[in-house]
Design a protein around this nucleic acid. Structure first.
Length: 669
DNA sequence: CAATCATGTCATGGT
DNA sequence: CGACCATGACATGAT
């Protein structure tokens, strides 16, 4: 869908509209053909792409009316497609002239049609009829594949039967993921068996070589495209577009499901039709791996669930798109249909499966991208080995899940599905966004998934597909009680991963919460009032581990804030004390200065008094007219204000006796 | 490489 | 008694 968006944003016009419709036709056909979201979702996707709503609805009406027009030409199973349609070579040229990268998938379909047309007419009618019925069914018409085949084809009942058979066997096939390519026949319908028999005379070895070359050539371009996707993700936070991208890729990916392992044979036969399907082959292989892996991953973990809940094929998902809750049990593919407006933050086992599967299909998309256009083996190897990648964390080295994906763009889908993000993270963490504040459609009981015992040790590709999911749950056990990487046996990559996350403002608790799929943000957990917090815990089905982690997060968060406040307070106190010290020191200096001034004034007063004293004595005269000696006499003031001249030796005694003996009144001259 | 700082976390006590 | 807060002590990473 990002291609769609690119084209859409590149310019409007009838050409683009036609192209969109064509692609939509392909998508819708894939939807019906491969049990992908119905055209209603396509409408939403187009809306989310930013295109005019009228166009989206026009698409819906268009598809509902069955008028696929060019879509029918694009897709060999389209309603208007007939054997007289232009050869796929011309078709592909036309499409390529429009810049449509769906060529590979179209090739496959075109090949399928041509193969069927060249072979059994009844089979062709069966397939085409089913496809035509699918197209005629229009947007939003949720019909299971079998009924489609019966209704549309009207002829070959095997087509209808094959629909359900495919769906069932698609779930069973993943039991042996490593043998998916040859075992893809497990998903094969009877038509495909016929096709396989029809083309098995072709040289397989040469085809493999050609495929390998094609794969490497395509993978070189894939990473470039992937980088473009990442850039687009970085500059485009809306997860819807990425979801659409994933959906498109899934559509392309899943589109190859009905073309089982025999498709390689079919590709060989396609040479008769002058069509190079090697690209489609590589795509088909990877996508088939993906589709095989998807249910395998989910059900491998819980075989009981697989047998008890997953009996419904994918088509059930498709038929219940408008009511996703009904499609949930055991069908992890609900991730495709994750409605945006579902209830937020209901953590369920299906939600976990949803994340799981979405991540898986993210990887699938990566692979399909890698095989679709460009592919760089070196980059891909880095993609698997790079510890700094974003989408996953391999917590358990025993899983060999060291591969870390760079398919950030696809991971945005998860975030988009959940639609709740509190962190200022780069798009690289979008695969985890759902963990914190996720959008979960139904509050079922949480299924604590333990991927550690999944025992999956597939090849690198499969590890790549699975590593995200090992990440989700690995930290759960030790995480609640210790640091993410405090255990001595932990991988260094965990540490680097964690440090990376912390560098991106992803706190430890956020990291833990995401790891345990806590459906609340750390801020919520910490800042929520206690009543709301308790009611929240009671409202959601959370495991003890999750509750414990949530409480720990709350405790740590509050204590962290308290510690910050405490330190801030302490610093304030220290600063205040320092200010007090400064103030007191300044006051002390001031007092010192005042004291000095006072002393100086006192001295001045003393001097003046002394001068006055001597001046007074110099003016005094005794009875004989002689100057009074100040050493023998002293001046003494009385209460009435008179001044007496008292002899010093008599001063003390006179003080006792009252009136001095030789007391005289001072006479001023 | 040690010292210092900043921050998170835990334990503990008080409210 | 539980929740919350304050704070000392410790660990760890950064500078």
């Amino acid at each position: 869908m990002k291609h769609l968006k690119r084209w859409w944003s590149a310019g409007g016009g009838l050409l683009h509209l036609t192209l969109l419709l064509s692609l939509a036709g392909l998508r819708v056909d894939l939807d019906l053909y491969l049990l992908l979201p119905p055209p209603t979702l396509l409408r939403d996707e187009l809306l989310l792409l930013g295109g005019p709503a009228s166009s989206a609805y026009a698409l819906n009406r268009f598809s509902a009316s069955g008028g696929w027009g060019r879509a029918g030409q694009l897709h060999p199973k389209g309603r208007e497609l007939d054997p007289a349609a232009p050869p796929e070579g011309q078709l592909l040229r036309e499409v390529r002239a429009l810049g449509v990268p769906f060529i590979p998938r179209t090739r496959v379909d075109a090949w399928l049609v041509h193969s069927v047309a060249a072979g059994s007419a009844d089979e062709a009618h069966g397939l085409l009829g089913a496809a035509a019925a699918s197209s005629a069914g229009g947007a939003g018409t949720s019909v299971d594949r079998g009924s489609q085949a019966v209704q549309g084809g009207g002829g070959d009942p095997r087509a209808a039967q094959s629909g359900s058979l495919d769906a069932e066997e698609e779930e069973k096939a993943p039991v042996e993921p490593t043998a998916h390519v040859p075992d893809a026949g497990g998903c094969a319908s009877e038509e495909n068996e016929v096709l396989r028999e029809k083309h098995e005379a072709v040289d397989h070895s040469s085809q493999r070589e050609e495929n390998e070359e094609r794969v490497s050539a395509q993978k070189e371009n894939s990473l470039q495209q992937n980088n473009e996707d990442e850039n687009k993700v970085a500059e485009k936070p809306d997860w819807e577009a990425e979801k659409n991208t994933e959906s498109r890729n899934e559509g392309v990916s899943l589109g190859d499901i009905p073309l089982p392992g025999s498709i390689s044979d079919g590709m060989n036969s396609s040479a008769h039709h002058h069509v190079n399907f090697s690209q489609a082959i590589s795509q088909d292989v990877n996508l088939h791996e993906a589709i095989l892996l998807c249910p395998n991953n989910t059900f491998r973990r819980n075989p009981v669930t697989r047998t008890s809940q997953s009996q419904e094929p994918f088509l059930q998902l498709n038929s219940h798109t408008t009511n996703p809750e009904q499609t949930l049990p055991g069908t992890n593919s609900t991730g495709f249909l994750s409605p945006v407006d579902n209830h937020v933050r209901n953590l369920t086992s299906q939600d976990l499966l949803y994340d799981l599967d979405v991540n898986i299909f993210d990887e699938i998309n990566l692979m399909s991208l890698g095989t679709e256009d460009d592919f760089d083996p070196i980059n891909v190897s880095q993609l698997f080995d790079e510890p700094d990648s974003d989408s996953g964390l391999s917590l358990d080295s025993s899983h060999n899940s060291t591969s870390v994906t760079k398919s950030n763009s696809s991971h945005c889908v998860c975030e988009g599905a959940t639609g709740y993000c509190t962190d200022h993270e780069s798009s690289s963490h979008h695969d985890l966004e759902g963990a914190v504040g996720g959008n979960y459609p139904e509050p079922n009981k949480l299924c604590h998934m333990d991927h550690s015992d999944s025992g999956f040790h597939g090849d690198l590709t499969f590890q790549h597909v699975f590593h995200n999911h090992t990440y989700h749950l690995q930290p759960s056990a030790p995480e609640s009680t210790s640091e993410p990487f405090s255990l001595p046996g932990r991988s260094q990559k965990i540490r680097s991963r964690y440090l990376e996350d912390t560098d991106r403002n992803l706190s430890r608790d956020e990291w833990r919460a995401k790891a345990l799929h806590i459906p609340f943000s750390v801020d919520e957990i910490v800042g929520m009032p206690v009543d709301s917090f308790n009611s929240m815990l009671s409202r959601y089905y959370l495991t003890d581990l999750q509750v414990s982690l949530i409480r720990d997060i709350r405790r740590r968060g509050k204590n962290k804030v308290a510690a910050q406040n405490c330190r801030k307070r302490k610093l304030d106190i220290i600063l205040n004390l320092e200010n007090d010290v400064c103030n007191l020191q300044a006051k002390k200096e001031t007092l010192k200065r005042e004291r000095a001034q006072c002393n100086k004034a006192i001295n001045i007063m003393k001097q003046k008094l002394h001068d006055l004293y001597h001046d007074v004595f110099s003016r005094l005269r005794d009875e004989e007219g002689r100057p009074v000696n100040p050493n023998h006499y002293a001046l003494q003031c009385t209460h009435d204000g008179s001044v007496l001249l008292v002899p010093k030796e008599l001063g003390a005694s006179s003080h006792k006796k009252g009136n001095p003996k030789g007391k005289e009144k001072v006479r001023r001259n």
